[in-house]
Design a protein around this nucleic acid. Structure first.
Length: 482
RNA sequence: GACCCCAUGGUCUAGAGGCCUAGGACAUCACCCUUUCAAGGUGGUAACCCGGGUUCGAAUCCCGGUGGGGUCACCA
């Protein structure tokens, strides 16, 4: 039975790196008909940020990632799913290790430790615990029972520890590089490397799939499993996601949280698809995959070993793919929050969305492109004004408007006819009519095809806007923008 | 610094010794289409980090170098 988990610490929102890790875990679980558990790593209460657990879960859900067991439903068979609520088990294990002399109390003060480190640094040695308290006798420990202490695990001083990594193969570590690390803090709460091992075992996690930054710490967790006589899960360390400058992604690189991407108008399914491609490729080279397609084809052996640099441009391209492929209804729902103008009067909303979506790379842009359908332009693009709003065009617009007033029915083909006829009558090219009309009606020089656009906008609005523009042109009082 | 991981165009990647004069996607450039802009179509520029091996043959295997990343907490 495949059981995987995503174990974030509740210290902020869902980061793209975490989202990718969660996604891969989710895909493995679903692919193998296993379970995906969500566990909140809140070992250190002091570093928690209120509300981040909710934010994180919301982020996951919006990406389409669902878990079978987690802190929101603490009724799973292996709960609780908040590490802070599993303290009893951690303490019991620490007690056991102490009783079996596989761990020991360390009374060294932070000051002493700092001093040790300095001394070693002076000699050019790596910072490692001296083992001062390892050999304390039972009597000595008894005698100091009132003192502040931590618990350290006895780590083998020779031999090697091998991490069998599903992605990288066997990774060997010389045990001499590890010291007796702390497993319980002075308040008798566990340190991460101790708690994860116990929790992963307790939750019967079969595959630990996480970011590469955890690879170096894996031997420590293996020491815990071994000391406790527990089976060791399979490991798979995912390559990291880096910023364009090859550094870790951080706020200074723009959006990093899935929530921010959503605010930028990125569709979450597009984000998920993009993240899927960061470190994984489908066997047939397909890049646009639905979640269920990904579940069907995803396997860890196709995961890349190299860190990936995320590329905003490709994300936008991916987003555009989803803008045009998703149903109009879905896009309409998604774009609503970005609209800051009243929709009370104007054409059918979904029709407008459908006509405009192909030209926008994100929802913010889409909302902006749709604006003129609901608000008459108050300013006109200066570039277009110089080109299309001349004294002569006022007359052209006048001629067009006259015919538009009476044409029936008001549909695409008849409107084309109006422009063709007018152009012929005035002996100008059709384009000489089209461009000024677009500018008069939308205020812009770019947009959907003119005939589709005015068909949708309707006779009254079109004629009115053309008249407005005409007057402005004649009075040479054209408000411009850009 | 020590240890660990990694190394194909600007970016994401395909490639598991001959199928590679290295394929796809994004980006970029040009052209076509066209009422504009997108989209679309066609074509172009652009990569196997370096050096040694192994082999008849290496992007693919081995070693070394270089470069990048990660980890070394009483953080997670």
């Amino acid at each position: 039975m495949v059981r995987v988990r995503y174990a974030p610490s509740p210290t902020g929102t869902l980061h793209i790196g975490g989202a990718r890790t969660a996604l891969f875990n989710y895909l493995v679980a679903r692919h193998f008909d296993g379970q995906f558990v969500l566990r909140v790593e809140d070992t250190d209460q002091s570093r928690q940020i209120p509300g981040s657990e909710q934010a994180m879960m919301h982020g996951l859900k919006s990406l389409g990632i669902e878990w079978d067991e987690g802190p929101d439903r603490n009724d799973g068979p292996y709960g609780p799913y908040r590490v802070s609520e599993r303290l009893g088990q951690h303490r019991a294990m620490a007690d056991r290790l102490l009783a079996e002399h596989k761990a020991y109390r360390c009374f060294c003060t932070p000051e002493q430790l700092a001093q040790d480190r300095e001394n070693r640094a002076a000699q050019g040695l790596p910072p490692r615990y001296s083992g001062r308290c390892r050999t304390l006798t039972t009597q000595e420990v008894q005698a100091r029972s009132g003192e502040r202490f931590v618990v350290r695990l006895k780590v083998p001083s020779e031999g090697e520890t091998v991490v069998h990594d599903l992605i990288r193969g066997d990774v060997r570590f010389d045990n001499r590089v590890f010291d007796d690390f702390v497993i319980m803090k002075p308040d008798y709460t566990p340190v991460y490397n101790f708690a994860v091992a116990i929790d992963d075992y307790d939750m019967r996690i079969s595959h630990v799939i996480r970011g590469e930054e955890h690879l170096s710490n894996t031997p420590k967790q293996i020491f815990v499993f071994e000391a406790l006589g527990l089976p060791i899960p399979q490991f798979a360390h995912l390559p990291m996601i880096l910023a364009p400058d090859r550094s870790k992604v951080s706020k200074r690189h723009g959006a990093t949280a899935v929530e921010e991407y959503r605010d930028q108008g990125i569709l979450l399914p597009a984000l998920a698809n993009y993240l899927l491609l960061l470190g994984w490729s489908s066997p047939n080279g397909e890049e646009i995959l639905t979640l269920s397609e990904a579940i069907a084809t995803f396997t860890l052996d196709r995961v890349q070993h190299t860190a990936a640099i995320y590329d905003q441009k490709k994300l936008e391209w991916m987003n555009h793919q989803y803008m045009t492929r998703l149903s109009v209804h879905e896009i309409a729902q998604s774009v609503r929050p970005f609209i800051d103008y009243p929709l009370t009067e104007g054409p059918d909303f979904e029709a407008v969305v459908d006509l405009s979506r192909e030209r926008a790379v994100n929802l913010v842009q889409l909302a902006e492109h749709m604006r003129f359908f609901y608000e008459a332009p108050s300013r006109y693009e200066s570039k277009g004004v110089a080109k299309h709003f001349t004294d002569q065009t006022a007359d052209l617009l006048d001629a067009v408007a006259k015919r538009l007033k009476t044409v029936t029915p008001w549909d695409h083909d008849h409107l084309v006819q109006v422009y063709d006829d007018t152009a012929a009558a005035l002996n100008v090219k059709r384009a000489a009519l089209i461009h000024p009309t677009r500018l008069a009606v939308t205020g812009r020089t770019v947009g959907p095809g003119l005939f589709e656009l005015i068909t949708l906008l309707g006779r009254d609005a079109v004629v009115e806007r053309i008249n407005t523009a005409q007057n402005l042109i004649r009075r040479h009082q054209i408000p411009t923008v850009d």
